[in-house]
Design a protein around this nucleic acid. Structure first.
Lengths: 243, 243
DNA sequence: ATTCTTTATTGGACCTACCAATAGCAAGGA
DNA sequence: TCCTTGCTATTGGTAGGTCCAATAAAGAAT
């Protein structure tokens, strides 16, 4: 059957851009398990020779993979491109780019995070099993120490870990990574605007939250958490920008 | 206060990797709104001259931004690098990479998606306002047509749109993009394994879901949706892989 | 045994040249 | 007039070379 006049009879013999083919090759090796996190790729010059392309092409391919968070390169002797473990960074840079492009607002991101954290608690409540709270207990204890000793620098990673442990209650990596990415994003923008927050209020909220969880009052925990986040949110917008 | 012997007294004057500085510059211009979607960057040779770096460096920077989904390049006269609109593709490739790196499983992704769609319905129910169902109505009508006329090819994008419209009920772009990304991922892997599914069963589920929503029975809608997704999930794992 | 020096390796940057796609314009023919 | 054809300038894509800088390991000096 003949094609209509305007339609293409032939597909292009070769898709443009050699470096994309190189990226594809490496992705395939990763997906097939031939390359695993920690493995080292051949040197750029060697790869170029093996694939019969210029070193430029190899470098652009590595740049693409590195930007996607699948590689890290080290200089010097015995350096090279090493396969990375997956991390939330890949999602959070994607979210960050969407914020930069004005495709999503920080308000939306904030609301989505509150909703998702609440969803996690709903899920735990519904499962009927008593969750393992040891990680959260330890985190709140460490936060209490950091507040009393005045080590405000330690509080930022502890806060990140706190929300991570909530997400981890579901034992679902996809949710963990997504929530981690949101937390990372929010913290990045938050640090630009507020220097510090009220430590006592923070501790009070954390303890109340944990007490609710221990007692199995998941709805109350959810309310406590979302109200705390609301307070932070208000602070964020009211605080003077300090870029 | 003097630093300990081993510690660095000075930070390096310039961090390695010039192309990262170039990426940063362009990102800044984007964040500041000086560059907007649709705008065209100067030609590579011109950019290289302006920034006083080699064309190679410019290209590697553009590759990084392009991979992040912020740019697209066109060849030829009046070609160049054009700023893109944000899209869910950026998140979905991040998710895809995490699956490839075995950091998250498809099961987790599937479960997370079911949870998040349920969360959307909870949120709508809680808001108390009657949602605008026109988009969903139209989508289901179109699906019905595609099923009866046997146009199975149309059903894939319609399914994607269906879940997108559910996400859109929250009017939160962050959630929309995240759920869209999940849908895209799942569909990509699903298409590799199942050729088709039962159209009647699909329609039945869609209509029941919509009826529940119209009547304000959000919990029932949630159950209907999650059961449908469960069925798809089971099909997915039982179907013979066809790579 | 410890410390310093050398050296081979390897990524980072630069450069020049050429190829290939593309849009716009001009010339030519129906 | 309108459409085709071909030329041309612009611009990204690829090649392949040079040099620099960081680095780890081997070797030399203490």
């Amino acid at each position: 059957m003949a094609k209509a006049a305007g339609e293409a009879l032939f597909d292009p013999v070769r898709s443009d851009r050699t470096f994309e083919l190189v990226v594809q090759r490496i992705r395939e090796k990763l997906a097939a398990g031939e390359l695993r996190p920690g493995d080292k790729l051949p040197a750029e010059r060697e790869l170029a020779k093996q694939l019969d392309v210029s070193r430029n092409v190899v470098r652009e391919a590595l740049r693409a993979l590195e930007n996607a968070g699948m590689l890290k390169t080290r200089k010097g002797a015995h350096g090279g491109a090493f396969i990375e473990e997956g991390s939330a960074a890949q999602i959070s840079t994607a979210l960050n780019d969407l914020v930069i492009l004005n495709a999503i607002s920080l308000d939306d991101l904030f609301e989505a995070r509150v909703m998702m954290l609440g969803m996690v608690l709903d899920h735990v409540a519904q499962s009927g099993k008593a969750p393992d709270l040891s990680a959260l207990e330890a985190n709140v204890a460490a936060t209490a120490e950091a507040v009393t000793t005045g080590e405000s620098a330690r509080r930022v990673p502890l806060a990140r870990a706190f929300y991570h442990e909530i997400a981890a209650l579901t034992d679902n990596r996809a949710l963990e990574f997504t929530i981690d990415a949101q937390t990372e994003m929010i913290q990045t923008y938050l640090r630009l605007r507020v220097s510090d927050m009220d430590g006592d209020k923070l501790l009070q909220s954390r303890s109340a939250f944990l007490a609710h969880l221990r007692a199995g009052r998941f709805d109350a925990a959810k309310v406590e958490l979302s109200e705390h986040l609301e307070r932070v949110h208000r602070r964020l917008w009211n605080a003077p920008p300090t870029p």
